[in-house]
């Protein structure tokens, strides 16, 4: 007749998890979930839904005197229009490396920031630029041209005069 005596619980022993801890755990989890969703919700705010930049489509009239190989840059735009016997085309002047504005030089384009060089068609010749300067869609509308900075067309696409 040997019964092991019930061990007397010590004040220092860890308590078993009582059922009422469920409420504590539930409140902890709901707080964490609320914080998570509120955080995601707040992060949506800084991502602008409407961009403040000017319209990407614009009309342009080419000057009569524009020679072949000479760039016409509409004021306030970072795009160059050219005219040759095959037609009119537009090349972006935003360097594909880090967004500086390239300048048009006789044998192509060069970037002041990190020395990228491009040929007259915008292809990379030298420097850190990863890709060629994109060509943009040009459409003719009576005696004006409409340039769409959002639409990229394959290199060599021209609109005939």
């Amino acid at each position: 007749m040997s019964t092991t005596p019930e061990p007397v619980p010590s004040r220092l022993d860890p308590e078993p998890v009582p059922r009422r801890d469920f409420l504590g755990i539930a409140s902890l989890c709901s707080t964490a979930a609320a914080l998570l969703f509120a955080g995601i919700g707040m992060l949506r705010l800084p991502k602008a839904a409407v961009l403040s930049s000017p319209s990407k489509r614009f009309r342009v009239t080419l000057p009569e005197s524009l020679a072949e190989g000479e760039a016409y840059i509409p004021p306030g735009r970072s795009i160059a229009l050219f005219r040759d016997e095959e037609g009119v085309f537009a090349i972006s002047l935003v360097c594909t490396h880090l967004g500086c504005i390239v300048s048009s030089i006789p044998d192509g384009f060069e970037c002041a920031c990190h020395g990228s060089r491009f040929d007259p068609d915008g292809g990379v010749m030298k420097g850190p630029a990863p890709t060629a300067l994109p060509w943009h869609r040009v459409t003719k509308s009576e005696d004006e041209f409409i340039v769409d900075e959002e639409e990229i067309v394959p290199m060599g696409t021209r609109v005939s005069l």
């Binding site: 840059i73 306030g76 970072s78 504005i101 002041a112 920031c113």
Partner: peptide, 20 residues
């Protein structure tokens, strides 16, 4: 329309700019 030439970051980022 016209980038500063040369366009340099603050000095402590110029090492990065060199790698960039």
């Amino acid at each position: 329309a016209v980038p500063e030439n040369p366009a340099k970051a603050p000095w402590y980022f110029l090492g990065l700019q060199e790698m960039v």
